[in-house]
Design a protein around this nucleic acid. Structure first.
Length: 891
DNA sequence: GCGGACTGCTTACCT
DNA sequence: ACAGGTAAGCAGTCCGCG
């Protein structure tokens, strides 16, 4: 694509009758030639474009789809032309509904229609009334008097026969309008469409279709029902991704009260700098001219274009030009800060609504033209953090995330924004925009592709999928399948009422049901340990056992004998559950196609990378697919499904362990879906795998082989050295991120030493070295020889605001309160760094402490317990190691 | 008044 | 706003102790 300058596109907007005009802007000349109409409706025929977003267009009362045309890098709007209307469904007849005055006289009411649907909880056809409305807010959304509330409220009053509100059902009244539009029209967000003669039609790509058919061949043994789902997923995942033309934006505000984040709803302080960093190399810094600010001596990269503005209004206009023209705008916390501030600031200046390219929501800020991705929301997502980026970043701050993922660091400021020279400010601000863009471009646009793939899987607009959690993604692809198969989307309360609660007792107080099994480890050092596990155990169980809210405790008497071990539940034998099919096919696709392809060296790097993105996205979904059924907030919440899944998991691993014993393989340890086998032969492994395949209908693979593993008697605590010398540390205190660096360093030294051990005989000299490491750490503590106090700091996250700890006052809260007294702002989520001191209350924030007040003995005790977890198994005694030193010192 | 046994709270981890 | 299970350290409580 050709280089595009920031202001290439504009829109025909109404000029404001202010003292300044749009023409006054220097970049206006370029824009005059090519003005785009706003709204940018798609022409009668539009070349292939990506469905990136959907919304409701209040102006014409229609669903609006945003299409991204990658060749021109522009967004086109397409409005529904099929007459689709917002609606809800109810079990009352039109005759009965006619009696409800507040319904039929509702200004938004349109008409009734009788439709036949399948009620998934009754498993039979039912006749329901579709109540259609002129706009989505009439169905629900307004505080009072909306259709979905009026029906159960008023009908009992007008009914001749007594009826309670509980007997009156309303379905699908809480589905967002554009989502039900997507489901009903069978549209696929993230996929490619054309506009032909004004109609939106899917674009078929030969290559992707061929691969889809090829994948289907891999699944030739699956049932035809399963194949349908495999095909649907494969097509969604095989279609290519476009290049995303985008700009990252960052603003700086000058407030007289430094330290404090300016309030983006008041927008009381001037915006002094805005940086824009585009994907095609555009680099721009917009600075506000202010009195007594010096130019400065810093220099920016030569390709950065710096522009000065006489007034903030002109600066805002220039920024808005970019927001009217870029199809994708990337921010870090733009929902709460940058875009919100820009919009409110413009309002304060008297800009008209139509001049502001930002739609201000309660929690989000969207764009009228393009798609706004707020990376803070995306990286904050726990599933993304843990499963897509394997916990590589800890704090969800621009600096932390970018350093961990891209190696780029923010510029450290020694002064406040107000004290910076123009060039210092520009350099600082531009760096943030550059980093923000980099977060979407590293590893071949990984993040953009991930969002696209998740949009396809979940049938959601890119804005929504990047902001919402995994349970919404899962809910939406499950919801999607209901209208597709003419089923009603059930209400959460009805699922709970018909399927009931759980029956097992959890080990942990306050939990709803019993979870997984953890096998008591065999303490000691073991050589040649094979770890076998079930790949995606819970999704496999859901597939093999046909689990879903519909199939669990179904109504058919003959299914009652098909019981689930260790529970009073049974599962349907007559009909496959949606969830079983959806999750099962997705799991199989990942295991049998995407995982191997993502490692296949025969593929081109680019394609292999695409497969990596896909298998990563599927992994995130699969990891949560069982848990959601046990989460009250999930719309298809069904505790017996979650309970049954866990119960079958326990049953499966228990059977494996007993089979291993039959084959005289010693099981050293196991957790949920894995067994650690001591020195098994190839034949033994093979037999166990075959038995599992045959008896449990699930695969059991060798996940890894440890040269040796070290177990203490604690569960979820071990250390294993792989054949290549890399070390797995699980659960040991030495790897926990809150412990002082001083102790962690010694632990890492020990880890390195253990990696060198190849055979049992090597342990003698390793043990000697480890004694030395521990002893050295101990004497340095005793002699107060540390590099800096921060090495001794414990780093603990404040889970809540300091005031809300009422039951106990943990040490990190004590430290937080000390800081608060000093006038420092401390919020939930902040990381507290504190050291242990002799005097009450025994803790001090690290920045306030001095060397001599450190309580060395507390640190020695910590050192002791940290090392004990490993040394215990090696036959070393920490007390003895430390004791020796004391003796030596006496001599 | 003080220390040990106990429970509960909190965080960080494992699957 | 995916789940339950485990470890560790500390805070707070109860009880015995001439």
């Amino acid at each position: 694509m050709t280089q595009k300058c920031l202001n290439e596109y504009s829109y025909a907007k109404t000029d404001r009758s202010k003292n300044m005009t749009v023409e006054a802007l220097p970049s206006m000349q370029a824009r005059k030639e090519e003005k785009r109409a706003f709204p940018p409706f798609a022409p009668k025929n539009l070349p292939p474009s990506y469905f990136v977003s959907a919304t409701y267009n209040g102006k014409n009362g229609k669903a609006l789809i945003k299409l991204y045309e990658p060749t021109s890098g522009q967004i086109y709007f397409w409005c529904d032309n099929t007459g689709h209307k917002p609606y809800c469904l109810t079990n009352l007849s039109p005759y009965e509904l006619e009696k409800i005055n507040r319904l039929v006289h509702h200004p938004g009411f349109d008409r009734f229609e009788i439709v036949e649907k399948v009620d998934p909880l009754l498993d039979r056809k039912v006749k329901v009334t579709k109540v259609m409305a002129k706009d989505p807010l009439a169905i629900g959304g307004r505080a009072t008097g909306c259709i979905r509330d009026v029906i159960p409220e008023d009908f009992p009053k007008v009914s001749k026969t007594p009826i309670s509100p509980e007997q009156i059902k309303v379905w699908e009244s809480r589905i967002k309008y554009y989502q039900s539009y997507i489901y009903d029209r069978k549209l696929w967000p993230g996929m490619i469409y054309e506009v032909k003669n004004g109609d939106l039609v899917p674009k078929s790509l030969e290559e992707a279709e061929e691969t889809t058919q090829h994948i289907l061949n891999v699944f030739e043994n699956a049932t035809s029902e399963e194949q349908q789902y495999v095909e649907q997923w494969a097509r969604l995942l095989e279609y290519p991704a476009p290049r995303f033309r985008r700009v990252a934006l960052d603003i700086e505000v000058h407030s007289r009260i430094p330290k404090r984040m300016p309030d983006s709803r008041e927008a009381a302080h001037p915006i002094v700098c805005v940086s824009l960093c585009g994907s095609e190399g555009q680099k721009k810094v917009l600075l506000l001219k202010r009195q007594s600010v010096r130019e400065g001596t810093q220099h920016l990269p030569a390709d950065v274009n710096v522009e000065y503005f006489e007034s903030e209004e002109k600066l805002l206009m220039a920024v808005f030009d970019a927001l009217w023209s870029y199809p994708f705008v990337i921010t870090f916390n733009g929902d709460d800060f940058d875009l919100r501030y820009l919009a409110h600031r413009a309002q304060n200046f008297g800009f008209q609504r139509s001049e502001i390219p930002i739609e201000i929501g309660k929690r989000v800020c969207l764009l009228k033209y393009g798609v706004h991705i707020d990376l803070y929301k995306f990286f904050f997502n726990r599933s993304i953090q843990i499963y897509a980026f394997s916990n590589r970043y800890r704090d969800v701050k621009l600096d932390d995330v970018s350093e961990a993922l891209t190696g780029m660091k923010k510029i450290k400021l020694e002064k406040t924004i107000g004290e910076l020279t123009y060039t210092e400010l520009a350099k600082y601000c531009f760096k943030d925009a550059e980093i923000t863009l980099k977060l979407t471009s590293f590893e071949d646009d990984l993040v953009m592709k991930l969002i696209l793939v998740l949009a396809r899987i979940s049938s959601m607009p890119m804005e929504d999928v990047s902001r919402q959690g995994v349970s919404r993604w899962i809910r939406n692809f499950m919801h999607r399948e209901h209208p597709r198969t003419n089923m009603l989307i059930p209400n959460a309360a009805d699922i709970l009422a018909t399927k009931g609660k759980t029956a097992t007792k959890a080990i942990i107080k306050g939990k709803k049901y019993k979870g997984a099994i953890v096998v008591e480890p065999v303490p000691g050092v073991h050589f040649n340990v094979a770890v076998m596990d079930f790949p995606s155990l819970y999704p496999s169980i859901m597939k093999v056992w046909n689990l879903g809210y519909q199939s669990i405790r179904c109504l058919h008497p003959e299914c009652r004998t098909n019981s689930i071990p260790d529970t009073p539940h049974w599962v349907c034998t007559r009909k496959r559950a949606l969830e079983s099919l959806l999750i099962g096919s997705l799991r199989d696709l990942r295991v049998r196609w995407y995982k191997p392809k993502s490692k296949d060296k025969a593929l081109q790097a680019e394609l292999r990378n695409w497969y990596k993105v896909i298998q990563g996205a599927i992994k995130v979904i699969l990891n949560a697919s069982y848990g959601v059924f046990g989460a009250e907030s999930f719309d298809l919440y069904c505790p017996p499904v979650a309970e049954a899944t866990a119960a079958i998991g326990r049953h499966s691993i228990t059977q494996i362990i007993s089979k291993a014993k039959d084959l005289s393989i010693q099981v050293l340890y196991g957790d949920t879906d894995s067994v650690f086998l001591k020195n098994p032969s190839k034949e033994q492994i093979e037999e166990l795998a075959q038995w599992t395949e045959h008896e449990l209908k699930m695969s059991l693979d060798v996940d890894k082989v440890y040269r040796y593993a070290v177990f203490s008697s604690r569960k979820k605590n071990y250390l294993g050295v792989l054949e290549d010398g890399s070390v797995d540390v699980k659960g040991l205190t030495g790897k926990k991120r809150h412990i002082p660096l001083f102790i962690k360093k010694a632990f890492d030294k020990m880890k390195e030493r253990l990696a060198q051990v190849k055979a049992p005989a090597d342990f003698e000299s390793a043990k000697k070295d480890i004694r030395e490491i521990v002893r050295d750490c101990y004497t340095r503590l005793k002699r107060r020889q540390w590099e800096s106090l921060s090495e001794l700091a414990f780093n603990v996250v404040l889970g809540a605001a300091p005031q809300s700890y009422t039951k106990t006052t943990p040490q990190h809260v004590k430290a937080a309160r000390i800081l608060q007294e000093k006038g420092k702002e401390v919020k939930a989520g902040d990381l507290m760094s504190f050291v242990k001191v002799v005097k009450e209350p025994h803790v001090k924030p690290v920045e306030l402490a001095t060397k001599n007040e450190i309580d060395v003995d507390k640190y020695v005790a910590y050192l002791r317990s940290t090392f004990d977890q490993v040394l215990d198994a090696l036959g070393l005694d920490v007390d003895e190691i430390i004791g020796l030193t004391t003796l030596e010192r006496c001599m």
